[in-house]
């Protein structure tokens, strides 16, 4: 029996297939969640089946906000439990997991590879991936272009926490002729400071560990480490943490 985890987030859908002993990742897949979670879930199932196994060989556990749209899942779990488990698999048994998602950000405290506490951002999108996506869009850039630009920027202060207000603030800054790289750098700084506030709400455990789509954004990782005063660890597989955790929790 193999174990698959499907994590349908607000922006990206992730799937991993894990070996029978749950020690290694056999295959992984990432695609945009799109506008129809159910369709995305079906595409991930086709992918799983294309790997050469039969449906009966695999236990499938769904997570993420779209988990209810995975009709073929054997069970579902919340993304908090799964991210915690997946991060512990990647980063160690005691961690303060920082997951910056497409529409929410969470801090999960892991002790002995178990979730003992967590906190999520409130209903607004400040401090989430959505914030940077909106800013990049406003500047006519893709997220990779936005980050590449931000690397060369000076840290300016974006004072609005609210995504909608920050967008207007950026429009004014562009109007004033502020260099785009500085604006991009400032926007990353805004997310980092909001995330750091969320982290400070909980007593940390072990090292900081970043999961989610920004695990390959050196600028964000560097700024987050500076603000928290301690190195933030991650790995390219950390964007699959939720899916990995789901697979690990399959029975």
């Amino acid at each position: 029996m193999l174990f698959a985890g499907i994590d349908i987030g607000s922006t990206a859908a992730k799937a991993v297939l894990m070996s029978e002993d749950k020690r290694e990742i056999v295959a992984r897949n990432l695609m945009p969640s799109g506008w129809n979670s159910r369709e995305t879930a079906e595409r991930l199932l086709s992918w799983l089946m294309s790997l050469g196994y039969s449906r009966d060989d695999i236990r499938i556990i769904a997570t993420g906000y779209g988990r209810v749209s995975v009709p073929y899942a054997d069970s579902t779990l919340t993304e908090i439990t799964c991210h915690g488990k997946g991060a512990a698999f990647l980063g160690g048994d005691d961690l303060t997991v920082i997951d910056i998602g497409g529409q929410d950000t969470k801090v999960i405290i892991i002790k002995n590879s178990r979730v003992i506490d967590f906190v999520m951002n409130d209903k607004c999108s400040a401090g989430t991936g959505k914030f940077l996506e909106v800013m990049a869009n406003r500047m006519g850039l893709t997220l990779p272009e936005f980050f590449a630009l931000a690397e060369h920027g000076k840290d300016i202060k974006i004072s609005s926490m609210c995504t909608v207000f920050a967008e207007s603030e950026i429009v004014s800054l562009m109007g004033l002729g502020t260099p785009r790289e500085d604006i991009a750098c400032g926007a990353v700084g805004s997310v980092v400071s909001k995330v750091a506030t969320l982290v400070s709400k909980k007593a940390s455990s072990g090292k900081y560990y970043l999961t989610g789509g920004f695990c390959e954004s050196p600028l964000l990782i560097r700024k987050l480490s500076e603000t928290l005063g301690s190195e933030v660890f991650t790995t390219p597989d950390a964007r699959f943490a939720g899916a990995i955790g789901a697979a690990l929790l399959g029975k």
């Binding site: 779990l77 919340t78 908090i80 439990t81 967590f118």
Partner: peptide, 9 residues
């Protein structure tokens, strides 16, 4: 989501 995660915890 919070309630679900809390129950799992």
């Amino acid at each position: 989501t919070r309630l679900g995660a809390f129950i799992e915890m």
